[in-house]
Design a protein around this nucleic acid. Structure first.
Lengths: 346, 346
DNA sequence: TTAATAAAAGCAATCGATTGCTTTTATTAA
DNA sequence: TTAATAAAAGCAATCGATTGCTTTTATTAA
């Protein structure tokens, strides 16, 4: 059973007393084969259970119908959704996806890039790891003549195609909403600032506060409160302050927001009356917590589709050098109970 | 920039006035190259930014360090977790994953199988689609000399390596738990019976009832209540019966269980006092609903690792024909508030 | 019926890396 | 210093499909 020989075009050619080139042409449905021999070849191919060897074909043709994807974690909802969206489109076009996860490790990200270069993929789609250091590996992708599309977490200094969410806008809208609901002291839970998405969310937070004439208070901005646990820790600290915040924007994730909610419950702080909570990502669970959590939808599956379409429609089809382009997807604030309180007169 | 030539071993050989075979041997670190020339070659390779062409290498060597994966949906938590587990192990071994989603369509599953055969992957890991029809495409994988591992949703009649959960046991434990909590009329929400996992869960349900001397009532077994919406519809119907159930086991998914919970809330049925609810899969949200939902953990990430290890340790290493083996993973009943009521004396 | 043209099929090189075998070079033994 | 041996390097075929070019066969025009 093992290592048995597969049927090749030579087997078919031999059986029919033809040349392999005719078999190849018949199978690829190109010209210069008579109707009769084509039929014969196709029938024989089926009979011998012939399957093309894509390795050989791709090697000869000099391109590979494969796209590489590198994400921090495959089983994080946002990335799983993006990948599902990507697959949906690439499948239609007959392309395969090779998927790697960096596990938030820069070293592993670099290794994955190298593997994908070796595989001669025609495009690499990447969202960088949390401990992203420098972009030399990304530059190497371009140097090897492979298309590069960055998404979500992108390296700012590198001019490539990018598909991102307008994190600053979303953040600004979320904070503005909190202000409109009458919250006065709004805390921010932040992610690592070496990732541009978190910088942008902070920028949006600051912009909204300033826009409404609020003071920006460093003591209300907690770095690295990414997970549920860290969100909980940060909340405990914030709510124990002499002058505690009356709203917390967990700009890192909904998981962080969930940590906030649980601590509030435990400390007997009523949400949304005494504390407003806003998360980020529109995870499925935000709809079913008590109260449900206000959050930001990133249209992740659509983002995947957008990325794939960008490749097929704008990058691949062009022979001339294409000008890198940034697609900015408008995220949407989903207002739920955790921030909806009747506005009290001032 | 486009279609530029990459550095090959011939470029290196030419530059150093050597033969390509020496370059190849130096790069693969095999014998018959002097220390001096090896160093020279490695230095030059780095200098010219040489990257191996895996297509050519794999074609020549006759095997491909790639594993194909086909799942119904990439962004369904269970499958995303399994894939993450797979990737974790295959990455360590220098293997790549090509990932396809069937979108629960049999036709697409067949197509994906063919693509992966063409890619000459060394193994295909599959969980079949909901409208699985027959296993000829799977037999074809074997006929082409490619290893096949089925997981979770498997084709029973085909003897291959399989990694599954003991669905019957899990189901029996869940129903037994409900009975122990004093529930008397336990309804079952079922999935399509052409998938063996759902058949097994039904079997476990029936077995538990019979074990405890309960009657099996067909009117309490609702087919095709897979999603949250269908779970809600089924619940509405069940709770409107003259003699409604006092517990619902949503054996299809936690989403279905969530549908049950929401309808119960709306109809003013108190959970767990008047209605016990048990789901399946241990989705993240089951922990944070009110009340939290009793469910079954499938150890999905571990399952992925188990599958990958099976390939590397038992299948790949053996040269003799290996005997297919079924690995049965013990799922775990996670008891939460939705089924915990104080047992009332009969 | 012959010549001109078009269609069909074959030839051979190619994509890039690998590897069994042979030849050349370097090292050790006689 | 020469012969025997070992190490290093080169030669050439190979993996399977593709494709520009040439040759053969079939078709149409003269």
């Amino acid at each position: 059973m093992k290592n048995q020989k597969r049927t090749t075009i030579y087997d078919i050619a031999k059986k029919l007393n033809l040349n392999a080139s005719s078999v190849s042409r018949a199978l690829s449905n190109s010209s210069n084969v008579s109707e009769a021999t084509r039929d014969l070849i196709l029938r024989t191919a089926k009979e011998l259970n012939y399957k093309q060897n894509s390795l050989a074909s791709n090697l000869r043709k000099g391109h590979n119908q494969t796209i590489g994807v590198i994400v921090p974690r495959i089983n994080q909802n946002f990335f799983a959704d993006v990948i599902a969206g990507l697959e949906e489109v690439t499948y239609q076009k007959g392309y395969n996806l090779i998927i790697c996860q960096s596990n938030e490790s820069y070293a592993r990200e670099v290794e994955s890039v190298n593997t994908l270069i070796n595989q001669h993929v025609s495009c690499i789609i990447i969202s960088v790891s949390a401990d992203f250091e420098d972009d030399s590996h990304l530059r190497n992708i371009i140097a090897q003549g492979i298309q590069l599309i960055q998404f979500d977490r992108v390296a700012d200094n590198l001019a490539t195609f990018k598909v991102v969410n307008d994190n600053e806008l979303a953040s600004r809208e979320a904070v503005s909403h909190l202000i409109e609901q009458g919250y006065k002291r709004i805390a921010l839970l932040e992610g690592p600032q070496n990732l541009n998405i978190f910088k942008q969310r902070r920028d949006g937070y600051v912009a909204a506060l300033e826009e409404h004439g609020f003071e920006v208070l460093p003591e209300l901005m907690i770095e690295n409160a990414w997970t549920k646990e860290l969100g909980a820790v940060a909340t405990r600290k914030l709510l124990s302050m002499a002058n505690p915040p009356d709203a917390i924007f967990a700009s890192t994730s909904d998981f962080s927001a969930l940590g906030v909610l649980e601590v509030a419950h435990k400390m007997g702080v009523v949400v949304p009356d005494e504390l407003g909570i806003c998360g980020y990502s529109n995870e499925a669970f935000t709809e079913i917590t008590t109260p449900s959590i206000t959050t930001i939808d990133q249209y992740s599956v659509d983002m995947g589709k957008t990325i794939a379409n960008l490749f097929f429609q704008e990058i691949k089809s062009e022979d001339k050098d294409v000008v890198p382009k940034i697609v900015n997807i408008q995220p949407k604030l989903i207002i739920r109970s955790s921030t909806l309180r009747n506005k009290k007169p001032l």
